[in-house]
């Protein structure tokens, strides 16, 4: 894609709805929403509810949120290298891995929602990248993996693709080989991002050509 195109695309703001594949759902009761809402129409869920559930300071968002050191140094090096390669292809999204031991019964989707919104945003750089963050939370004890995207990257991701990719590499998570599991997840992320980008390109091209047609029509009528 040319620099010019990138810039012009950067200026224009599209409706997320025109790209979004995945549905919106309540982190509390998992009700599907047709429209964005401040509160869940069923359980009245808001961010505040999650804050009261997880009443402890959220760690700062970083590439590795791993208080129990499930990842070794070499794992982190390998993962970082892979993430850097991915960043060259997709400069906007940021992937963060959080490996944590949660008590039984904690919904990892809700935890991810809480962490994305509660983690401190210190400085403009974090404010810029937070909406483009893809948070992958791994619950070591309960054996669950969740994916929580920020608002910026969310319209271009397909939830079902994530589920498929993680299931495909389930064996690494199950074996607690989180280094390999993370690398595999990054590979899957690249595919999902690529697919999302192509879809976005197609939609934008379609939108541009229909606008051109409309302009021509208007000029003719004039």
């Amino acid at each position: 894609m040319s620099q010019e195109k990138k810039e012009s695309r950067g200026r224009k703001v599209y409706r997320a709805k025109s790209f979004a594949l995945s549905v919106m759902s309540c982190p509390g009761c998992h009700l599907t929403l047709d429209q964005p809402a401040d509160r869940c129409p069923r359980c009245q869920y808001t961010r505040e509810v999650s804050m009261s559930k997880f009443a402890f300071p959220a760690p700062a968002m970083s590439r590795f949120i791993d208080p129990q050191n499930h990842l070794s140094e070499s794992d982190r090096e390998r993962i970082s290298k892979s993430l850097n390669d991915l960043a060259r292809k997709f400069p906007q999204p940021r992937i963060c891995f959080c490996i944590i031991d949660l008590p039984e019964g904690v919904d990892l989707r809700e935890f991810g929602f809480w962490l994305m919104n509660a983690s401190p945003v210190e400085g403009p750089e974090e404010a810029r990248v937070r909406p483009w963050t893809i948070l992958i939370v791994i619950d070591d004890i309960n054996g669950n993996v969740s994916v929580t995207p920020g608002y910026g990257i969310e319209p271009f991701l397909d939830d079902q693709s994530w589920v498929t990719q993680i299931r495909k590499d389930r064996q690494y998570f199950f074996a607690r080989d989180y280094g390999t599991a993370a690398l595999k997840t990054i590979e899957g992320a690249e595919l999902i991002l690529r697919e999302g980008a192509k879809r976005a390109e197609r939609k934008m091209d379609k939108s541009r050509s229909s606008k051109k047609r409309l302009k021509r029509k208007v000029r003719k009528s004039e």
Binding site: S25, C26, M116, S146, V147, P149, G150, Y151, L157, D159
Partner: peptide
Amino acid sequence: WSGGADVI
């Protein structure tokens, strides 16, 4: 920053 997702 995020509305969460249904991926687990």
